[in-house]
């Protein structure tokens, strides 16, 4: 009986109403944004699954009763990009050939530069840092023509190496800052401990810092892969027609004026082009957020 008054009153955590005004606002905004971005995707997917008669006769918002992957097959294998009709797969492999080396080279160079700046200060390293910071604000359009001349002088204009070089150079300022800030945010005493243990420049980088830096490497890979994959301009300018990346080929497919517009093929080709960055975000979004947060803590 002595317990009764106690048991009668509230106990445990205070129950929260499911929908508070704040939550209502947040959810509304999120849902509206999601619709805004998902709706075009929805149209693209259903259109790519229709055949051309359905597109001409039917309603654009209504999914097809007879989905077919013909348009996808055509987009990949035989859509015409200007003179050739080999589909967008040519562009896909070109994009791979451009993205993989550019990403690897720029990340290797940027991580080592950032590491050197953060932990092995050299004369003028602060000046160098400032220049780097400023240079990442210069509009890149300014540098397009000089780079055309430079690559031409190097004898690589309109080749794969030219576009890889350009992507690498343009990736460096931001990536170097990213790595520098990340390495500067690691405990200084860790670096000192490794020095006392006799570890040198490379040993500290590979054995102590790199294993701790998976998040920032992930961020760098995502930034570079998506950035380079989505690039259009550098591809058109520096790669040369045989090396046009997927984005450029897509543009050519959509704009090639042969017969009526094959909207289903265009849509399929577009989705195929966007698939790589989409997949990357999808599988590494968690690490991306974590890495950005980790890099942002200290500067």
């Amino acid at each position: 009986m002595a317990n009764t008054p106690l048991a009668a009153g509230p106990s445990g955590a205070k129950p929260k109403p499911f929908i508070t005004p704040q939550r209502a606002v947040v959810y509304t905004v999120l849902i509206v944004c999601a619709i805004f971005f998902l709706f075009p995707l929805y149209i693209m997917v259903i259109t790519s699954l229709k055949n051309i008669q359905e597109i001409q006769s039917g309603n654009i918002f209504i999914p097809t009763m007879h989905p077919t992957f013909d348009a996808w097959e055509k987009a990949w294998n035989s859509a015409c990009t200007g003179l050739y009709c080999e589909g967008i797969k040519v562009g896909f492999w070109n994009s791979i050939k451009i993205t993989v080396p550019s990403t690897i080279v720029s990340i290797i160079v940027a991580s080592l530069t950032g590491y050197s700046m953060a932990n092995w200060p050299f004369k003028f390293s602060e000046v160098f840092f400032t220049i780097l910071l400023l240079s990442s604000f210069i509009p890149y359009v300014v540098m397009i023509y000089p780079l055309v001349i430079i690559t031409r002088e190097l004898g690589i204009y309109s080749t794969l190496p030219a576009v890889v070089l350009v992507h690498t150079i343009f990736g460096l300022p931001l990536l170097t800052l990213l790595f520098r800030n990340y390495f500067a945010s690691l405990p200084q005493e860790l670096f000192k401990a490794a020095r006392v243990d006799g570890a040198g420049y490379w040993q500290i980088f590979f054995q102590v810092f790199a294993p701790m830096s998976v998040p920032i490497f992930t961020v760098a890979v995502i930034l570079q892969v998506t950035g380079i994959w989505n690039d259009f301009l550098f591809g058109v300018i520096y790669a040369g027609p045989t090396n046009y990346p997927m984005t450029v080929q897509l543009n050519n497919i959509v704009n090639s004026a042969q017969g009526g517009k094959a909207y289903n093929v265009d849509m399929a080709a577009t989705i195929l082009t966007g698939l790589v960055p989409l997949a990357i975000y999808f599988f590494s979004g968690k690490y991306f957020v974590r890495g950005i947060a980790a890099g942002a803590v200290k500067g």
């Binding site: 405990p187 054995q207 701790m212």
Partner: peptide, 29 residues
């Protein structure tokens, strides 16, 4: 160089290598 001086050092923040085991930490140097 630090490693040539015949000194060992212990830090306030411990400064252990997080991805190595205790044995790995002690045998690294």
């Amino acid at each position: 160089e630090p490693s040539e001086r015949g000194i060992g050092m212990v830090f306030q923040s411990y400064a252990l290598y997080p991805q190595m085991t205790v044995r790995g930490n002690m045998s690294f140097g």
